[in-house]
């Protein structure tokens, strides 16, 4: 298994047993790591409360009272362009993740549960796809989509994100680990077609693994920069990453925009942080276990 989505049965989360003394060194080191990771987050929380004149002139971590002014100013910028960017990001990440998870689940299921001619060719293609750096594809993808007139549309960002070799690889492992052959056989004895057996039997059994793949893809698309940056010219179609880096460019000539960049950065992180904290139990990715088991 490459990914464990249920807590491993071996050791549950328990407070340190009594014979284990707590170690101040471990605590200090972990807190230092947490401080390093939280520093920029704390800064953006504080900085987004500052007015443009305070941003560069008051003590870095001294909060001010302008958060709502900043949000109002950002929301008013070109008729709420910022919120369009957020909606676009949600469309790209939500749509792309949903479709690619379904495509991956079907392919992974076929690779795990059927014997057929060309199976190893298909699997090796998937592996090669995992190793191809996706970003290298962006320029030729742009040129090809330009030929069919799809650049500068939502499809230009959505279509390439529908295929995820890594998602297929993970789904194959989930299907192999969670869907027993006997259950599929029983469904067939009851007269279920292959499609129905997949939809009604296999998919529900793979569910927690699919949530992990969905989250993976959602974060990867939400965080993507180069693909939309290359594909889109109309700033009404931008996702929030491309939009904010464009705003930062404007800041070079209009320093007042920096406040909007900072506030926009804070707001853009909120949905993902919420998603993380609520779905944390699905982040149990064990990339290497597939190699030992082989």
């Amino acid at each position: 298994m490459a990914v464990l989505t249920v807590p491993p049965p071996v050791r549950e989360e328990t407070p340190p047993p009594r014979f284990k003394r707590t170690s101040p060194t471990a605590t200090v080191l972990l807190l230092l790591g947490a401080a390093y990771c939280l520093l920029p987050v704390l800064w953006v929380l504080v900085a987004s409360t500052k007015s443009a004149s305070e941003l560069f002139n008051t003590f870095t971590f001294l909060p001010s009272t302008h958060l709502f002014d900043n949000i109002a100013f950002l929301s008013g910028y070109r008729d709420g362009l910022y919120w369009r960017w957020m909606v676009n990001s949600a469309i790209f990440a939500g749509g792309g993740a949903a479709v690619s998870t379904l495509v991956s689940a079907m392919a992974g299921f076929a690779l795990a549960k059927y014997e057929f001619r060309g199976k190893s060719v298909a699997f090796n293609l998937v592996l090669a796809g995992v190793l191809v750096p996706a970003v290298i594809l962006a320029v030729p993808q742009y040129l090809l989509l330009a030929k069919v007139g799809l650049t500068n549309t939502y499809w230009a960002v959505l279509l390439p994100s529908f295929i995820s070799p890594y998602g297929i690889y993970l789904c194959r492992i989930f299907a192999a680990a969670t869907v027993p052959d006997e259950v599929l056989e029983a469904a067939r004895m009851d007269g279920a077609s292959d499609g129905r057996a997949f939809w009604r039997v296999a998919l529900p059994m793979m569910r927690s693994g699919l949530v992990t793949v969905l989250l993976f893809q959602f974060v990867a698309i939400w965080n993507n920069y180069m693909l939309p940056f290359i594909m889109l010219g109309d700033d009404k179609l931008f996702p929030v990453t491309v939009g904010l880096s464009g705003l930062l460019n404007q800041g070079a000539t209009q320093p007042a925009m920096y406040t909007s960049v900072v506030t926009g950065s804070l707001l853009s992180v909120v949905p993902l942080v919420v998603l993380f904290l609520t779905l944390q139990r699905y982040w149990r990715v064990d990339l290497g276990a597939g190699a030992v088991k082989a």
């Binding site: 340190p16 972990l30 947490a34 920029p40 987050v41 920069y225 990453t241 950065s265």
Partner: peptide, 27 residues
């Protein structure tokens, strides 16, 4: 497991994964 701040620090250290590279670079 020799610490009482495990859950908090684990979440805090994982948090940057939720921050896109562009936003991280801005910050």
């Amino acid at each position: 497991g020799r610490t009482r701040v495990g859950t908090f620090t684990r979440t805090a250290i994982f948090l940057p994964y939720a921050v896109p590279a562009v936003i991280a670079s801005l910050l």
